[in-house]
Nucleic acid binder design. Sequence first.
DNA 1: AAATCAATTTAAACCCTTTTAGCAAATTAT
DNA 2: ATAATTTGCTAAAAGGGTTTAAATTGATTT
Lengths: 342, 342
Amino acid sequence: MKKRILISDIAKSLGVSVTTVSFILNGKAKEKRISEGLTKRVLDYVKKVGYKPNQLAQSLRTGQSKILGLIVEDISNPFFSNVAKYIERIAYDNGYHIIYCSMDNDVTKAKELIQLFYDRQVDGYIITPPEGLEETVANLIKNNVPVVLFDRYIPNLETNYVVLDNFNGAFTATKHLLENPSNKRVGFVSLFSNQTQMRDRLEGYMKAIDDFQQQAYIKKIKIDEDEASSIEQLHEFIASNKLDAVLFATNYLAIHGLKAIKEYKMKLPHMVAYDDHTLFSLYEPGISVVTQDTATIANELIHTLLNEIKGKNKELQKITIPSELLVRGSSVISEEALEQTS
Amino acid sequence: MKKRILISDIAKSLGVSVTTVSFILNGKAKEKRISEGLTKRVLDYVKKVGYKPNQLAQSLRTGQSKILGLIVEDISNPFFSNVAKYIERIAYDNGYHIIYCSMDNDVTKAKELIQLFYDRQVDGYIITPPEGLEETVANLIKNNVPVVLFDRYIPNLETNYVVLDNFNGAFTATKHLLENPSNKRVGFVSLFSNQTQMRDRLEGYMKAIDDFQQQAYIKKIKIDEDEASSIEQLHEFIASNKLDAVLFATNYLAIHGLKAIKEYKMKLPHMVAYDDHTLFSLYEPGISVVTQDTATIANELIHTLLNEIKGKNKELQKITIPSELLVRGSSVISEEALEQTS
DNA sequence: AAATCAATTTAAACCCTTTTAGCAAATTAT
DNA sequence: ATAATTTGCTAAAAGGGTTTAAATTGATTT
């Protein structure tokens, strides 16, 4: 923690030039034909005094900041904070840092953040794009800035992305609900949003509904609706349609749903939420979810980005990760439900 | 997004020197007695072309990175991610960026992170110190690095910190539980940890127990215990002592407790958790919590740190934020509980 | 008219690396 | 024995700003 030691100090102490030390430190000893003896001597000394290059100077010179920008919808959503946690870890293991931000589905904020990151010369971006960010992202791509989209992609824009198999996730979930003979009326709660993940989840729901030749009950909530109003609307939706089951397109919509149920003492025998949450595993009755391995997602994201930065991606990576339906509490719950109704 | 414009470009275009532009941009026009006319001309032009100084070059020269390091216990814990979200926002509004990390209560990792941040020349630190970090933090202080501790502090070390009134929080919570005449046996679940927040919560619990002249039931869990074992131990603790109520010292311990209750179909009529969680508000019966305004905490933290950086703190800031007992569901629940038991 | 002074502006040093271009000595080829 | 390479290393420029120390200009004094 004492006074910072510089590369010139090393050079002086060893009686060699700064250039030589730099070459050796950057693994160019062979290439620059520096003798093995000297290489070892420098390396040993550097290790002994614990010299570390000044990142800022290094970045200024190389144009590489070794910082990655992560722009997620909302870091306080456990889905995103879990992914962030893994990304952070892998990035660090690869010598990168993460600067992260929540954009709260606000295009203006997202644009500002990207500009800010750009000014900071981050080496790459992982972005969950809100609607309206198409042009900004297109611009980044055009300028050869490494970008990976996440959770949703931008149609008609050729980018790397890592998303979930939303269609099959929603399809399987809806099918699961419909297969229960007591569920005649199965609804779907989503957002007013044309983002791909929402579109695909809707399509998955519709496919299942059509397969079972049932009526569709679809409710969309405004993306920036305040919680109280959202709860109010969900109450109305569930109660007036006398729904037996609902598929919620996001975890917080499902939470609003639960709050509505609690507040208005409604019955909603079955539901499936999108993206898991501690709450869902402990709630009685247990709440089934469409889930996915956040570690896998983080892995794909960060590796895609790092490869892009290193120019190792021969072609665009369009990765779809299968999602899984985690059925909860059916046995326990049906017992308990029976007990309670009896 | 096009090619970056430099300060030298500005100077050339305007036919003045780089120095002059720099002075004006850094608000030293008056001090350096640069004429108002020129000042305005430069400022207008800079705005017109949208010039922004290269942060790296700036940092390299001034030694200020405008980056703050935030080291929390676990970013996926909603308490921390909420505080982080606010901190992030305020920092940005003040022209600072946040680099954050979870240290997972691992001293080695925390030390590495601090070293890493130090190498990156962050301008200040917000740290939730794990046990064993005393010396490292002391070292930072000794080197005049701006530091604010958070959630817990280090006894005998003179630092800025922002913590909660853990003693009163735990005391009030325990008192609340004891005041219910049906609660004879009130336990406390905490961690094997000498961190101040845990120590104070224990003392608050003990004070209430002593005031009511009751027996104490205290269970500590290893700080890095795996979830399954933690659940197992909590089951044993609650069941064998036939506890009527439990105060949990952290939100995840309370979650483990709930899992134990669910898994082993136990009864635990009342509980209070430390740090709120969506789960606790929706669980049936609603779970009371000791909570606090994360916005206030974040505000105090970031402003203390920024003032420290600017040298505006005349003295050390030792801030204790009052915590609040949020009693949940007592009325509704007792009704429902009655219904179920009847 | 020369000297002094204040008001402006600027050249150059500095922050710390990386990297280009090149030099001197040792080898090899002719 | 000399020219052509190769080997081993380095001086200096570059990267993009900030800041010190000094130069320039015009006005005022002597």
